[in-house]
């Protein structure tokens, strides 16, 4: 198993946001979901750069929606997690769990 099978920190957050949003996942909703849940400001460029990387790895798939007037006649890019992406997020979650097992993080390091 190579490092490519695991997700980076921001990749992990993006895939989890995509899974939460399901078929409503596109640039704006993903960005807002991350800001809402992590309380950190995220740029749309960071979201797209990461989505491109995840798509190259085969972890997500995207398709274009219809153009809408509130977007100046531009279309949305909807994104879905593939089976390979779900496997990668599970693998990363398990690795993180194993690494934190037995560590009393709050008491020891706060």
């Amino acid at each position: 198993m190579s490092g490519r099978d695991y997700l980076g920190e921001f990749e992990h957050i993006i895939v989890l946001a995509l899974l939460r949003l399901d078929d409503r996942a596109y640039g704006v909703s993903v960005r807002q979901e991350i800001e809402f849940r992590t309380n950190r400001e995220v740029s749309i460029g960071a979201v797209y750069a990461t989505l491109d990387r995840l798509e190259t790895k085969g972890f997500v798939k995207s398709h274009r929606g219809d153009p809408t007037p509130e977007r100046g006649g531009r279309s949305k890019r909807f994104v879905r997690v593939t089976a390979k992406g779900v496997a990668a997020v599970n693998r990363t979650q398990r690795a993180l769990q194993r690494m934190t097992e037995g560590l009393d993080l709050i008491r020891t390091y706060s």
């Binding site: 749309i44 809408t68 977007r71 100046g72 531009r74 279309s75």
Partner: peptide, 15 residues
């Protein structure tokens, strides 16, 4: 292709 989605997203949130 990228500009279409990025500018659309920015405009939607901007308004």
């Amino acid at each position: 292709e990228e500009a279409e989605s990025i500018l659309g997203d920015l405009l939607e949130e901007y308004f």
